[in-house]
Amino acid sequence: MNRLLQTDPWGYRGLFLALALLLLFLRLLPLGNTAGALPGPDLMLCLTLAWMMRRPDFLPVWMLVVVFLAEDLILMRPPGLWTALVLVATEFLRARTALTRELNFLVEWLLASGLMLAMLLVYRTVFVVTLLPQPPFGFAAVQVAWSALAYPVVVGLSRLVFDLRKPATGEIDDQGRRL
């Protein structure tokens, strides 16, 4: 089963969609919604960045658009803004697949955290320019900090539970294609 999942990208794509639905469902549950409570991490973003650093071929652009646009619509965010930012970040990582394959985990963690912070700043800049109301900066900064701290946990669980790892340099799949 595990070997089949590793050779079939559709198995991981289905798994990613199932995890996205589960995370969205958990986010919609009315748990801990008291005034002044600290925000939790954006686990969907952590999962996306972690999987993009390991196996970008498992996350096609169309799937990311569907997942994050649905999340925008369900969570009543401006439709497409967060989706566009996630796509820019993931395509930035996809274009640097060879580089991210060689990074040690600390540098990878810093890169993911920097991307999260950059996305927050661009998101809030668009809100300022368009004069949209937005939550206080501290609230958003705490969410990015929690997301950055949750990133290693998401990477560890992806590795241990789903055996999602970076391919070694020169590794090939069953059809003889380079990974």
Rank of each mutant, 00 (worst) to 15 (best):
N2T: 13
N2G: 14
N2D: 15
R3W: 05
L4N: 12
Q6W: 07
T7F: 14
D8M: 10
P9F: 07
G11P: 06
Y12T: 05
Y12F: 14
Y12R: 14
R13K: 12
L17E: 05
A18I: 11
A20L: 01
L28N: 06
P30A: 11
L31Q: 02
G32K: 13
G36Y: 08
G36W: 11
G36M: 12
A37M: 01
A37Y: 08
A37I: 06
L38V: 10
P39Q: 00
G40V: 03
G40F: 07
P41F: 06
D42L: 13
L45F: 05
C46H: 04
C46Y: 03
L47V: 13
T48M: 09
T48K: 02
L49S: 00
A50R: 01
A50D: 11
W51R: 05
R54A: 14
R55G: 00
P56Y: 04
D57V: 11
L59C: 10
W62T: 03
M63S: 11
M63E: 10
A70W: 01
D72R: 10
D72I: 03
L73K: 10
L75G: 00
M76S: 11
R77G: 01
W82P: 01
A84K: 03
L87P: 10
L87D: 02
L87N: 03
A89K: 01
T90M: 03
T90N: 07
L93F: 04
L93S: 00
T97C: 10
T97F: 15
A98R: 12
T100E: 09
R101H: 02
F105E: 11
L106R: 11
L106V: 13
V107G: 00
E108L: 06
W109D: 10
W109A: 03
L110H: 06
A112T: 09
S113E: 08
L115D: 03
L115G: 04
L115S: 01
L120V: 04
L121F: 12
V122N: 01
V122W: 07
Y123W: 13
R124C: 05
R124T: 04
F127P: 00
V128L: 15
V128F: 15
L131S: 15
L132P: 00
P133R: 05
P136L: 09
F137C: 05
F139N: 03
V142W: 09
V142A: 13
A145R: 05
A148I: 04
L149T: 05
L149R: 08
A150Y: 02
A150C: 11
A150R: 08
Y151W: 14
P152N: 02
S158P: 02
S158I: 06
R159E: 02
F162M: 03
F162K: 07
D163C: 12
R165E: 13
K166Q: 01
K166S: 13
P167N: 07
A168G: 12
T169H: 14
T169N: 12
E171Y: 14
D173H: 06
Q175F: 06
R177I: 05
R178T: 08
L179H: 13
L179M: 13
